[in-house]
């Protein structure tokens, strides 16, 4: 330990300042001890840091990707559903509107229009022969109600559903 006796003397004689015996030796030990402790803590944190941070980062990335995928999926299905609803809403009023306007303008009246609508739209869509449909209607006039129901059911089952 190098100390300068003149420095102490100067401060003591001029300013009246004193220090405890062995003060600088003790202070040096305290400083070095503090630094050693700090270094140990730093090392511990460093070794603790690496794998913990890596794992934490991986987990965060994983969760992030899952969350992102979920958002994209939700967005897609939402868009699809929205599109379906829009299509349906666009279709229904058009059909009903057309039907209503035509019923007002045509002499055949609503019954004729319904038949026409069924033939042109539903039967064509389901690729049912128009003649079969007319036969079924004629048969229905000649048959009992229960038989008509049965015939219609069979017709629907065989032609439309299947």
């Amino acid at each position: 330990m190098k100390t300068d006796p003149n420095l102490h003397k100067k401060h003591k004689s001029d300013l009246g300042y004193d220090i405890p015996d062995g003060f600088f030796k003790d202070t040096k030990a305290t400083i070095l001890e503090t630094i050693k402790e700090e270094k140990t803590v730093e090392k511990k944190i460093f070794f603790l840091k690496k794998p913990v941070y890596q794992i934490a980062a991986s987990v965060i990335v994983l969760f992030g990707m899952m969350f992102l995928y979920k958002i994209i999926e939700t967005n897609n299905s939402t868009v699809e559903i929205e599109q379906k609803i829009v299509n349906q809403v666009e279709e229904v009023p058009n059909t009903m509107e057309d039907l209503y306007i035509e019923s007002l303008m045509s002499e055949e009246g609503l019954d004729g229009l319904v038949d026409n609508y069924i033939i042109t739209n539903i039967l064509e869509e389901t690729k049912v022969n128009v003649e079969d449909y007319e036969d079924m209607i004629i048969d229905s006039f000649l048959s009992e109600d229960s038989e008509v129901d049965e015939q219609i059911n069979q017709f629907i089952m065989s032609e439309i559903v299947l």
């Binding site: 420095l7 401060h11 040096k28």
Partner: peptide
């Protein structure tokens, strides 16, 4: 690092102490 820091303390702590003491007054 540690050895040279110990040397640095030996070299300068007394001068730094007196410099500080005159500003903060008490030991």
């Amino acid at each position: 690092r540690e050895d040279s820091f110990a040397e640095l303390i030996d070299l300068y702590q007394e001068r730094l102490y007196w410099h500080i003491r005159k500003i903060v007054i008490t030991h």
